[in-house]
Write a protein that binds this DNA or RNA. Structure first.
Lengths: 225, 225
DNA sequence: TGAATAGTGTCTTTCAGACAATATGCC
DNA sequence: GGCATATTGTCTGAAAGACACTATTCA
């Protein structure tokens, strides 16, 4: 079979980016979903996503789409996986490159667009029915997040600049889904050398004040890469 | 800005799959490259790849393309990363989903197509000039392979059905780029429970014959997922 | 018996995990 | 003093890493 130099345009699939935006709120790992305003799957919840534009690369597209749909800026995004089953979208062939990110829950804003978009956090283990193959994508992302958490400072995105070690521990506990020993957790976190004490103390509450820490670097460091 | 329900077709990028096919030969980690017969980058070496067809999913496309270009079948493929810089191909917007695989070096065959395609193994640390952004893709894949090797039986694909432990060790040494202690290696590999002795012995050479082993399961198991 | 590779065990160090008492500040 | 949270160290078991000698076959 002869292959044409230029692929037939009509065969080109559309390419989207989907952003899995996680947060921790009320001791639960939650994910941001938006309600679809159009068919197919009108009124179903879905992962915020959008088409990749001509001049932008995939990460730029993810950043733009995230901002348009959720108002969120300045987050660390990591490419997750590319889903491309031929019939995952009933309208047309749409291949989606998924990204994930973690943000503090208060960072979410409703976008300023002309129409109000329904946007909401859902506990990652109590999802509503989702459009397309989005259930599978969310489950894949949750799995990856749990695996990555143990070897990274990925939770950086979830915390304010200065935080208590007990805040940090709580984030890990929620993501991993189980409790951690306080002494072992502190030992390990501090030995990684990613944190530094700010010298400031948290003076809230009728109890001993906690040292506030911050991450030395803004970049997320992965230890398995 | 109003978003159309259906993306403008002319904006759709082409989507390809590229397969990074590694082997170990002469104690070197090598990768399969094909010489381009057409512009752009005519006569440059490149990663075997091809366009995703309408009815197939990404992995099916990778399997097909791999077979068409290299004659290789029945390999374990793993999705690696999706590259989508807008100008990575001078002809048009082409987004590529990369996969990688490992095969015994003898499995490579020149394809039976109408024209002879130049296809060759290159040591992964001595690459010729590559077309497009393929250098970056290969380097990314080599890095991932090294990181994965320690936690998986991914080298399964590199060995014949029955093999000596010293063969297995050699594969790891070549991929990781450094030597391993024989006793510690055997201790760890056998304790993982993935291998079983076949009872057969390798009677080649003027020395004590080696026990031949095989993997219990055909599936590649990753310990970090 | 010499050459070549197969096969094996111990010690040490390191890391993860279990576990409980003291410290500090506010009321 | 009572309450609430912060902070700290030891022991144990498991796994990783350093390290050297014996076993088997063939020429």
């Amino acid at each position: 079979m002869k292959k044409t130099l230029y692929p037939e345009v009509f065969e080109n699939p559309a390419v989207t980016v989907d952003v899995l935006l996680f947060t921790v709120e009320n001791n639960q790992l939650k994910i941001v979903l938006v309600k679809r305003a159009e068919e197919p799957f009108r009124d179903s919840w879905s992962i915020p996503g959008g088409f990749v534009k001509k001049g932008e690369n995939l990460e730029e597209a993810a950043i733009r789409v995230l901002n348009e749909k959720t108002g969120v800026r300045d987050v660390y995004l990591e490419q997750l996986y590319t889903f491309g089953e031929p019939n995952r979208d009933p309208r047309a062939r749409i291949i989606t490159v998924s990204y994930f990110a973690l943000i503090p829950s208060k960072h979410l804003k409703k976008p300023d667009g002309e129409k109000i978009i329904d946007i909401e956090y859902f506990p990652s283990n109590k999802l509503p029915p989702l459009a397309f193959d989005h259930k599978k994508i969310v489950e894949y992302a949750v799995e990856r997040l749990k695996n990555k958490a143990g070897y990274s400072n990925i939770v950086y995105g979830l915390l304010p600049k200065k935080f208590r070690l007990s805040d940090l521990q709580k984030m890990y506990e929620v993501i991993l889904g189980h409790q951690l020993d306080k002494r072992n957790f502190r030992k390990r976190m501090l030995s990684l050398g990613l944190l530094e004490p700010t010298g400031e103390k948290d003076l809230v509450g009728a109890h001993r004040p906690a040292q506030l820490y911050q991450f030395k670097k803004r970049e997320v460091v992965f230890f398995d890469q």
